[in-house]
Nucleic acid binder design. Structure first.
Lengths: 165, 165
DNA sequence: GTAAGTGCAAAACCTTTGCACGTCG
DNA sequence: CGACGTGCAAAGGTTTTGCACTTAC
């Protein structure tokens, strides 16, 4: 939390950043959950991705690793991954939910969403950490989570629309 | 847009605020759509509400006015009402969407959502008008819409949870 | 009169769940 | 062996859609 000089030994993300796979296995054990091939295939599929993905994406990728993975197991594993903090859910109001690893985020993320194509850009919005807490407090509520989303049209989609119109 | 003293004749919301029903009928006509009993029953049901409502709520209320209203017509009418600008959609990521009239809103609205109960509080968040435009511009995109939502737990739900735990 | 609007019921969609089998400890 | 985990398929719940009938204009 405080501003300190980086030391050669300690870093600011000591736990999950360096070894998310091990962190996940530890998390499973701590919850009394088993480390199964399917769960780890799903985990690996997720962490091979750098962008947003859907449950269906994850199913495809996980099956490439372990073809016994079923859709049900993907849907049952996602909440566990989210609870572990290694994955977060990104609900942009579409028919299906998106997910993303939490690897390189250090502040609150807003989403800039193209209305017409699948593009979703993650943007730092650090002021939200203050905003949500303040607003919740004003109404005597306890902050749980927040989302800030901007729907827009990217340049290529504007061009396409222009041609059509 | 400019700050001007209120005059006895002109007001700052000249069109829809004073007669939303007439505005809606004019809107329908301008789009070549017919003014049917069902559409107006749905409209009236919506404008009898001051809070958020779902499609199902609207169906119930509209049927109390005209019992021939079907669920399909409600779902077909909602996009028209939204397009007219008299109703807006409030998607808080639940299984069903909420709607609300746009009557008394003059700036961007954020939602403060209780995680456990149905409570949704609308809050003015005027800075968003600037934020979204700026962010979209930064990525060469054209702003379409935005949402800012804070999920929290209201005091009564905190108490309930406290008793359970 | 005619095309738009409607009701009904079935479909569509992602996601969840019941059940019997598998598997890990 | 016993409980957790899994795959399959069916269910779940909201929203959409095809079709024949109604109705506004």
């Amino acid at each position: 939390m405080t501003t300190e000089k980086p030391s050669p030994v300690a870093v600011k993300k000591p736990d999950s950043a360096k070894d998310p796979r091990g962190t996940f296995m530890t998390f499973l054990a701590s919850k009394g959950l088993r480390v199964t091939n399917q769960r780890m295939a799903i985990f690996d599929a997720a962490f091979n991705r750098t962008d947003h993905f859907t449950a269906e994406d994850l199913l495809t990728d996980a099956r490439a690793i372990d073809d016994s993975v079923s859709r049900a197991t993907v849907y049952r594993s996602l909440p566990i991954l989210v609870e572990s903090g290694l994955i977060r859910e990104v609900d942009v109001g579409r028919d299906h939910k998106y997910y993303m690893t939490t690897l390189h985020q250090d502040t609150f993320q807003a989403q800039l969403i193209c209305q017409d194509c699948d593009k979703i850009v993650e943007v730092d919005a650090p002021f939200m950490e203050w905003y949500g807490k303040t607003l919740a407090a004003k109404y005597n509520m306890e902050l749980v989570s927040q989302r800030l989303q901007v729907v827009a049209r990217c340049q290529s989609c504007e061009n396409k629309a222009g041609k059509h119109a």
